[in-house]
Design a protein around this nucleic acid. Structure first.
Length: 846
RNA sequence: GCCGAAGUGGCGGAAUGGCAGACGCGCUAGACUCAAAAUCUGGUAUCCGUAAGGGUGUGUGGGUUCGAGUCCCACCUUCGGCACCA
């Protein structure tokens, strides 16, 4: 494809012109309450993109998919009279910048600034209607000052189980507030990645390897900052209900939080003072327990292990410790474990149960100990078979299924006072019994763990914390922002000591106090950026009360929060969960007016390469948006991305598809313009002020209706189809009514803003399209006097019939029966039934 | 293994239970042209038939209905997520 091929219309010139116009006029600046130009009569609309990490490789075609969708909504709502907040910014802390910096010796701040300039230029080239006055950057001290401030809110708060809310830690009545803070320090087994020189969150470890780079990850205990997100588990589940999110994403979050109801049961251990607590979701099977299993790391193992087993237990613990997570969680492997030689007493019947340790029991979940019921649990069953432990039925399956290995609900058997009860009732009964006898109680467990919040990196927000005499303390708010030290060498130390520990002057806070040298994870900045956009330059607060109430608050017409949030599914769990958590804490503390940040969420599907495979450098199927824009223009690029298919769906790229959309835009161009003898574009002589013919009127109003509805429902592909139908209908006309063409320009403007502005101007209209009011359709124009009906015989189309719109069912029936084809098909047959669907069809059943 | 989403022409896809395949790509014929590109006009699921017309057809098999791509049941395939969570 030659690049000097003649352009179907001069998009290169006109796109640059309008981008400059929007920039210089601040066309899409949204005023806050109190700002000049603010109109309190206008409703607000907050439409948000997931801001990008400004990588060195620049924008790929996946970014603009979601960004174009929100841009269409922003421009559409603006024409509908809304005050639209549509901002963009940079999630610029993070590992790649730091690693690139280490490789090149350039400071990450330098490369980050360069990458941001590149991203901004690329986005402007696509013509997005962002309010660039509101740009935020998570690495800007004016921004991360407030990230640190929010951390201090967490640090100074606790979750009051009585009120189920975050409260200032001063309301805590216990002795040591450090035990309950939402931000706390703990010695926890963490995912240590030697290659990256840092700890990773569970979420950042995929199959025992780091999500970034795929390096091996091992577990080791380390002192870390944690955020008590588990306190909010119930609310994070419950408050999903009111959100307009895809059900699949809500489900993903619920599964991630992983709430399960069950019971804690207390087993005493022979010859030991300490009892073992186990968690089970099937307390109804307590009579079927034949042994206990503790996680190898369980605190009681040391105490209870019999002398004879001490050696074997120690060896097993050692082998587990050296295993990577990958090996340990490999499902294909055999069950392993050793006996401790100790015996537990089943509280319900006094039986002696051997106590084992095995790595299929995890330290981090429940109590780190289980009662094994091999008859009715697949893992226990496998373990019992391998080690020849007894298997005892206590549930009778409802059908013909064999009881051994049956894990469903049935009826309790061989279970004393539970026998005969259905599983549900048996659970309640045994919970009552346990509580009555002080042997346990019903509890709830979550898969969600507290959020491991510290990283051993340079390029992140420093914690506003100092250490003195082994105790941590917050620095005063007046010392924020706490900027990282300027360092020549910010390489990982190779030990768990973070790079900041090398900046000795910075670390030294006072004679006796030292700074915390960990930094926050990349998630921190993205947890609240949507709030900062509302009031991006405020030096006094992270967001002013007024701005928060206006953009995020609820009113009678609006449940509050961001009105539309579009981004990829890769953030369906972590980012959205973390941001909701912070939002709830800030809400509880009275800083925000609604408990949920994102009212409506839409996930765009990923764009595959032309070969139907995931785009990747190694496959060589990556599409560069810059090249597409150079060849076809930004409008064609935008429209093609929207025309590919439904927004949420995964779909392959097709460059010839871009050509098709480009042809469509060129046809729009030629509705208004034509070439003269000299090959210059001049206003078309066919464009005149004439009244519309009836069929034209119908197409026009059908198009207004369809495009309006389709934009509201984010069905941009069919909106474009309808506008193609419009263009096809008007292209052939000898005289093209100027009013109808201008209406099309308004409808097309949100999708293709440059060409429509230029044609608006060239057609001699006043002002700009962006400032026009969105057109309304006239239902009367869609009504025809005569309708074409389908005549079916036994559900098959046999004829067509034109009837008056006002015809009665009887008249339609008669006309259908009289039609020649119906006569043929019904000849000699009995008519059993006639179904008339007004405006659609007649079905004759013979 | 569990959970979720999806299967429609050569391709991307469209279709409040009511004419399956809108719109676009590709292909194809024609117009314009010395010619090509571009542009414009028409055709394009499949089988039988010169045609008129008819049969078949939305992953597979059943069902509900006057009527099913759409609703119900079972199954197959693909993709995504979680994964020894007791």
């Amino acid at each position: 494809m030659s690049t000097d091929r003649r352009k179907p219309y001069p998009f290169d010139r006109l796109e640059a012109k309008w981008q400059h116009h929007w920039d210089s006029q601040s066309t899409f600046h949204a005023p806050n309450p109190g700002d000049p130009g603010f109109d309190p009569a206008k409703p607000k609309y907050y439409v948000l993109d997931m801001f990008p990490y400004p990588s060195g490789t620049g924008l790929h075609v996946g970014h603009p998919e979601g960004y174009t969708a929100t841009d269409i909504l922003a421009r559409y709502k603006r024409m509908r009279g809304f005050n639209v907040l549509h901002p963009m910014g940079w999630d610029a802390f993070g590992l790649p910048a730091e690693q690139y910096a280490i490789k090149t010796g350039q400071h990450p701040a330098v490369t980050t600034a360069h990458n941001i300039d590149n991203f901004r230029a690329q986005l402007k080239r696509i013509g997005f209607a962002y309010d660039w006055h509101r740009e935020v950057n998570t690495t800007d001290p004016g921004y991360f000052k407030w990230t640190q401030w929010i951390f201090l809110q967490l640090y100074h708060s606790w979750f009051n189980p009585a009120t189920k809310k975050a409260e200032p830690v001063s309301t805590y009545r216990g002795a040591d507030p450090d035990l309950v803070r939402l931000a706390y320090v703990a010695e926890v087994p963490v995912n240590w990645c030697p290659e990256l020189g840092t700890v990773l969150a569970n979420e950042e470890v995929i199959e025992g390897k780091s999500e970034v780079g795929g390096h091996p990850v091992e577990r080791r205990p380390m002192r870390q900052w944690m955020l008590r997100i588990t306190s909010f588990a119930d609310r994070l589940i419950a408050e999903l209900d009111g959100l307009d999110w895809p059900d699949s994403i809500k489900l993903l979050q619920r599964n991630w939080i992983g709430r399960s109801e069950g019971a804690e049961v207390i087993f005493s251990i022979e010859d030991t003072a300490q009892p073992v607590r186990v968690f089970t979701t099937r307390p109804d099977t307590l009579f079927g327990a034949t042994y206990l299993v503790l996680a190898p790391e369980h605190a009681l193992v040391e105490e209870i292990t019999a002398e004879s087993q001490r050696e074997a237990v120690r060896a097993y613990q050692e082998s587990c410790r050296s295993k990577s997570d990958l090996e340990r969680t490999d499902l294909a492997k055999d069950k392993s474990g050793v006996s401790t030689g100790a015996f537990a007493i089943n509280p319900v019947n006094g039986e002696r149960l051997p106590v084992w340790i095995a790595d299929y029991v995890l330290t981090g979940y429940g109590t780190g100990a289980i009662m094994a019921v091999p008859a009715h649990d697949a893992r226990d069953h496998e373990f019992a078979l391998k080690f020849n432990l007894p298997i005892r039925q206590v549930v009778q399956p409802p059908g013909e299924e064999p009881w051994q290995g049956f894990t469903g609900h049935g009826t309790a058997v061989h279970s004393d006072f539970l026998s005969g009860l259905p599983t549900q009732e048996a659970k309640q009964e045994i919970n009552r019994w346990l509580e009555l006898h002080g042997k346990g109680k019903g509890t709830v467990q979550y898969k969600l763990r507290d959020w491991l919040f510290s990283r051993q990196r340079y390029w992140g927000e420093p914690f506003p914390i100092i250490w003195e005499n082994g105790r941590h303390n917050a620095i005063p708010e007046s010392e924020l922002p706490l900027t990282p030290p300027i360092m020549e060498d910010f390489k990982p130390t190779g030990t768990p000591e973070p790079p900041l520990s090398k900046a000795l002057d910075w670390v030294r806070y006072s004679e006796t106090a030292r700074r915390e040298t960990n930094t926050m994870p990349q998630w921190a900045g993205s947890c609240w950026y949507y709030l900062r956009y509302c009031d991006p330059k405020n030096p006094e607060r992270f967001i002013s009360k007024e701005a928060e109430r206006y953009w995020m608050g609820a009113d009678s017409a609006n449940p509050g929060g961001v009105d539309l949030y579009v981004g990829g599914t890769e953030h369906a769990v972590l980012h959205l969960l973390y941001a909701r958590f912070w939002h709830k804490v800030l809400f509880d503390l009275g800083h925000l007016s609604t408990p949920e940040p994102f009212q409506k969420l839409v996930n765009q599907g990923i764009i595959l390469g032309e070969d139907g495979q995931k785009m990747s450098k190694s496959r060589g199927n990556v599409v560069n948006p810059d090249e597409i824009i150079s060849e076809f223009g930004a409008d064609a690029f935008r429209c093609y991305e929207m025309f590919m298919g439904p927004l949420e769906q995964m779909k392959p790229w097709s460059t010839s598809g871009v050509e098709g959309v480009s042809r469509f835009l060129a046809r729009v161009w030629r509705l208004v313009m034509e070439e003269n003898q000299a090959g210059e574009w001049v206003r078309s002589a066919a464009l005149v002020e004439v009244p519309l013919e009836k069929p034209q009127l119908k197409v026009l109003h059908a198009t207004i209706k369809k495009v309006s509805e389709d934009i509201e429902s984010l069905s941009f592909n069919t909106a474009i189809s309808q506008m193609m139908i419009f263009v096809n209908a008007f292209t052939g006309a000898a005289q093209r009514p100027i009013s109808a063409i201008r209406t099309l320009l308004k409808l097309l403007n949100p999708l293709a803003p440059h060409i429509t502005e230029e044609l608006w101007f060239l057609s001699g209209a006043e002002g700009t399209v962006a400032d026009q009011v969105w057109p309304e359709y006239d239902p009367a124009a869609l009504i025809e006097d005569e309708l074409e009906l389908v005549v079916q015989i036994n559900g098959k189309v046999r004829d067509k019939l034109t009837v008056l719109r006002i015809a009665t069912s009887q008249e339609i029936e008669a006309a259908a029966l009289a039609s020649p084809r119906a006569q043929e098909w019904t000849a000699g047959k009995t008519i059993r039934k006639i179904v008339v669907v007004p405006g659609k069809l007649v079905n004759i059943v013979v």
